[in-house]
Simulated assay, not measured.
Amino acid sequence: MIVECDKYYMPRKNRVLLLPIQWREEFNISENDLLSVHKENNRIIITKKTPATGFTLKYVKMNKKGVITIPKIIDDELDCRLHQLYINQDEHSFLVVPVTQEKSSL
């Protein structure tokens, strides 16, 4: 199930994103955990587990407030438009998707 959040991300701004505590707790993510971050089809996927091969992975550490920094190399590849945070409960992952993209393609 995909859950829409009221958190947004703007590429080429400050590159930080707050992951909601409810979902961090549900996915068993805590301070200093390494999260894998990769770009797939113009969206960012953030997860605690390592995804299937074929992606250029970057790892980020989450701070105690639940904030991560999106790697510059990934941020630079995104369209410079507003993105929204979604939760993929089935995959235990966070998705950062352009706002204009249709929800059916999540």
Score class of each variant (00 low, 15 high):
residue 63 N to G: 11
residue 67 V to M: 13
residue 54 G to Y: 05
residue 100 T to L: 10
residue 103 K to N: 11
residue 36 S to T: 14
residue 68 I to S: 03
residue 63 N to K: 10
residue 94 F to H: 07
residue 46 I to L: 09
residue 93 S to F: 00
residue 88 N to S: 10
residue 84 Q to W: 04
residue 71 P to A: 02
residue 9 Y to P: 13
residue 86 Y to S: 11
residue 47 T to D: 02
residue 72 K to P: 01
residue 84 Q to R: 14
residue 76 D to Y: 09
residue 84 Q to L: 06
residue 82 L to Q: 15
residue 13 K to S: 11
residue 75 D to A: 08
residue 86 Y to E: 09
residue 56 T to Y: 08
residue 26 E to K: 15
residue 59 Y to D: 00
residue 69 T to I: 05
residue 96 V to Y: 08
residue 24 R to H: 06
residue 54 G to V: 02
residue 2 I to G: 09
residue 27 F to D: 03
residue 105 S to G: 00
residue 93 S to E: 01
residue 46 I to W: 10
residue 7 K to A: 13
residue 1 M to E: 02
residue 33 D to G: 06
residue 96 V to W: 07
residue 62 M to F: 07
residue 86 Y to A: 10
residue 78 L to Q: 12
residue 34 L to H: 02
residue 55 F to Q: 02
residue 89 Q to H: 11
residue 79 D to R: 09
residue 34 L to C: 03
residue 12 R to N: 14
residue 77 E to H: 03
residue 15 R to H: 07
residue 56 T to W: 01
residue 81 R to P: 00
residue 25 E to I: 05
residue 106 L to N: 10
residue 56 T to H: 07
residue 73 I to N: 09
residue 42 N to T: 13
residue 20 P to T: 13
residue 8 Y to G: 03
residue 27 F to N: 03
residue 58 K to E: 00
residue 14 N to C: 07
residue 17 L to M: 15
residue 51 P to K: 07
residue 46 I to E: 00
residue 101 Q to W: 06
residue 9 Y to V: 09
residue 44 I to C: 05
residue 52 A to T: 10
residue 25 E to V: 05
residue 93 S to N: 11
residue 2 I to H: 15
residue 27 F to M: 06
residue 30 S to E: 10
residue 88 N to G: 04
residue 25 E to M: 09
residue 27 F to E: 01
residue 71 P to E: 02
residue 57 L to R: 04
